[in-house]
Design a protein around this nucleic acid. Structure first.
Lengths: 140, 140
DNA sequence: AGCTTATTGTTCGTATACAAACATAGTCCC
DNA sequence: GGGACTATGTTTGTATACGAACAATAAGCT
């Protein structure tokens, strides 16, 4: 071989394994919460927990850029889960608030959301779960 | 509170942390290999390592469904990195082969691909990397 | 006030991802 | 041989993701 370049085995590359783990997680999510996507649920959850926020601020808290959060919020609004109003102090800002329907849906789905994390980590032992989450957070 | 439902903290849900880790990885990937996406590189790498394959078979090996691998292959073909031909033994199949340009590009990028995995795992110690990859593979 | 810069939200283009429906081509089995 | 089933690839629709460019607004500075 040209030099000491190690063999490239796809299944041992972080990116590939990350992608497959995400795929499995998405399957579990869709089975437990069919009426919302992970990002939609994340945005709704943040709004319910942290109170009204501007669109971009919500995006920052849920790790979505301005273009992505817009689409997510548009769909939440179309479903009547979130209402939007202009901020009187800043004409650019859109203040987002969960509707009563949005709050109700969130409350009704929280236990499933916890089950999703539990099921995703099911192949691991209790100790492994803590280790895994800690290491995963480190490479964030 | 209504019952013993634990608080839902987004940053402690696997899905959310997985997504953020993937985001960081994609940034590292794009910086090291700007001319190919992770899925495009994965498909090209498999073809170079495992030899010619049908489109759907390649999709299975790279964890992409039929619709997704089609788009990836279309773009690889458009870039002249992969050539396609009908399988004489099965008129449905498209046999994919890396072009010389495709092989050359793959060879030229393998070291960066290894660097991507290394950089993504950089926040971890040597021992932690092995642990992490093993646990990540378990929840796949 | 006037100028510069930063922030907010929008739009466009590209690229995964996957469900579902479809046409074509093989395979199996009676 | 013929019918049922399966596999291959395509297309459509929906939903992230993000870069880049843009208009409108706000904030800071001189």
């Amino acid at each position: 071989m040209a030099s000491d370049t190690p063999e490239y085995v796809l299944d041992r590359q972080v990116g590939f394994v990350l992608r497959r783990a995400t795929q499995r997680h998405l399957t579990i999510f869709a089975a437990q919460i069919p009426d919302l996507t992970p990002t939609q649920f994340a945005a709704l959850a943040k709004l319910c927990a942290a109170g009204p926020e501007s669109q971009n601020a919500l995006g920052r808290q849920t790790a979505m850029d301005a273009a992505t959060i817009k689409g997510v919020v548009d769909r939440l609004r179309a479903k009547g889960l979130v209402t939007a109003g202009r901020d009187p102090d800043d004409q650019r800002r859109i203040t987002l608030t969960p509707s009563s329907k949005g709050r109700a849906l969130y409350e009704a789905r929280v236990s499933q959301a916890h089950a999703i994390t539990r099921d995703t980590l099911a192949p691991l032992t209790e100790a492994e779960r803590d280790t895994f989450l800690a290491l995963l957070a480190k490479i964030t």
